[in-house]
Design a protein around this nucleic acid. Structure first.
Length: 416
DNA sequence: CGTCCACAGGAATGACGGGCGG
DNA sequence: CCGCCCGTCATTCCTGTGGACG
């Protein structure tokens, strides 16, 4: 069979197979459903707090916390879109702007997207942050509205940039004459408060809303509701549903995770031509998601991060115990030599290791070995087979996977 | 009980490419 | 086109430190 025939078959199968999914989109976590189960309390509280804007008053600033997948973003978007339609009904001059701080990345880009939403265009870069802020302020003041700013994943920005952004925004009302601003800050980190300037904190958390994680039965209700939209009648076993809920509940009560599991399980079932999604498909989905996560993470690393990672890979073969910073840097230097790349400093490698630790590809722990110094012990968090698989097709790095570092034979502590 | 290893990790500074306004 | 500022990555220099060893 030639390739065209294979493709034809794949496509026809896909189109012909309507039995697994009815509406796959309903399982995406950015899908906004009509109802949000188990979040009535939060919806009510947020609604009450923000409602004054309909009468032209400023709503209190709000600080929302909760771990990932607890419905913070969904609830906020839900309430705000409803508010927007009400505002149109009453002709209230209300506007809102949603910014994901982690995706935006820098203060500059956060301000830039705030500007864009009130119709002030800002170049990608080139201006000082202060200048962008000034333009935002004057643009906002002349548009005479009540502006609600939603800063999602605000913790990502605070931790790397500090709280200057928030400080400016909490004070902005003092200098505005014709417009008003309400802030909604959303944080995944419950301890973010400790990073904040007390003045910022008191201003931002005029009202606080906490999102507790969902338990297994709540997750099941959420899934059930989405599943009704996504799957046809009886294409989903109760066991599969329960398993998704249980797995997600065991992790962090993360609804996003539960939805992903269910969607991928559906896709597994679809590929296998199964008419009903069962537990086994969920198990398969769990592996599949993890596998993809790791492969994507590895591929997207910079060259030097890959080299650092490969150094740990080599050391993990020779050592029963874990690699330490100094060893990694030695092997890393060698690998750089093989590629003809100038190596980075140990200091830099140390922070690259920390980054790899943060993404979960490595595990790094600072330990003291007393007389023998204080260092980080580093372990692989990815199977060696998977690493070979990922780098095998890399024409530059493939060779390095098989390479035998001289450092290892010179300092052979290997085996026992 | 002090010493001293082998680093951790903060701060300051520099190089560089992109993009501005004038 | 110039001078300037930005964000990012990296280097240099630095002070801090847990605990086995003597």
């Amino acid at each position: 069979m030639n390739d065209t025939n294979i493709l034809d078959e794949v496509f026809e199968k896909f189109v012909g197979n309507t039995k697994t999914f009815k509406n796959r989109e309903a399982l995406r976590h950015d899908y906004l459903p009509d109802r949000l189960p188990h979040r009535g309390e939060q919806i009510k509280l947020l609604g009450e707090t923000i409602a004054p804007v309909l009468k032209g008053a400023r709503g209190s600033n709000i600080f929302i916390y909760g771990k990932t997948g607890t419905g913070k973003t969904a609830v906020t978007k839900y309430v705000l879109t409803h508010l927007e339609t009400k505002a149109k009904e009453f002709n209230a001059p209300v506007k809102f702007c949603y910014v994901n701080c982690r995706l935006a990345g820098t203060e500059y880009r956060v301000f830039a997207s705030l500007c864009r939403s009130i119709g002030v265009s800002i170049p990608f870069t080139g201006l000082s942050v202060g200048e962008v802020f000034d333009r935002f302020r004057t643009g906002l003041d002349s548009s005479k509205i009540i502006f609600i700013i939603i800063l999602d994943e605000i913790d990502a920005l605070i931790k790397t940039r500090g709280d200057i952004l928030l400080y400016e925004l909490t004070r902005i009302n003092e200098v505005l004459c014709n417009s008003k601003v309400s802030l909604i800050g959303i944080s995944n980190d419950l301890q973010l408060k400790e990073f904040l300037d007390p003045r910022v904190l008191s201003s931002l958390s005029e009202e606080e809303i906490v999102f507790r994680p969902y338990d297994a039965s709540e997750l099941k209700n959420i899934l059930l509701e989405r599943a009704r939209l996504a799957f046809p009648e009886s294409a989903l076993s109760d066991g599969a549903l329960s398993l998704c809920s249980a797995l997600a509940a065991a992790e962090h009560g993360d609804a996003r995770r539960a939805l992903d599991l269910l969607r991928v399980a559906g896709e597994v079932a679809e590929r296998r031509d199964a008419s009903v999604v069962v537990e086994e498909h969920v198990r398969e989905a769990e592996k599949h998601i993890e596998h993809n996560r790791v492969v994507e993470a590895l591929k997207n690393l910079t060259l030097h991060s890959k080299l650092v990672f490969l150094s740990v890979f080599h050391l993990s073969r020779a050592n029963i115990h874990r690699a330490i910073t100094g060893e990694i840097h030695e092997v890393y230097n060698e690998l750089c030599g093989e590629l003809g790349v100038t190596p980075l400093t140990q200091r830099r490698v140390s922070t690259l290791v920390n980054e790899l630790d943060a993404t979960g590809l490595l595990n790094a722990q600072v330990v003291s070995m007393g007389r023998y110094g204080r260092t980080k012990k580093i372990r692989l968090e990815v199977t060696r087979t998977l690493i070979r698989e990922v780098f095998a097709n890399d024409n530059r790095l493939g060779r390095l996977v098989k390479y035998e570092p001289k450092y290892l034979s010179k300092h052979a502590r290997g085996g026992s």
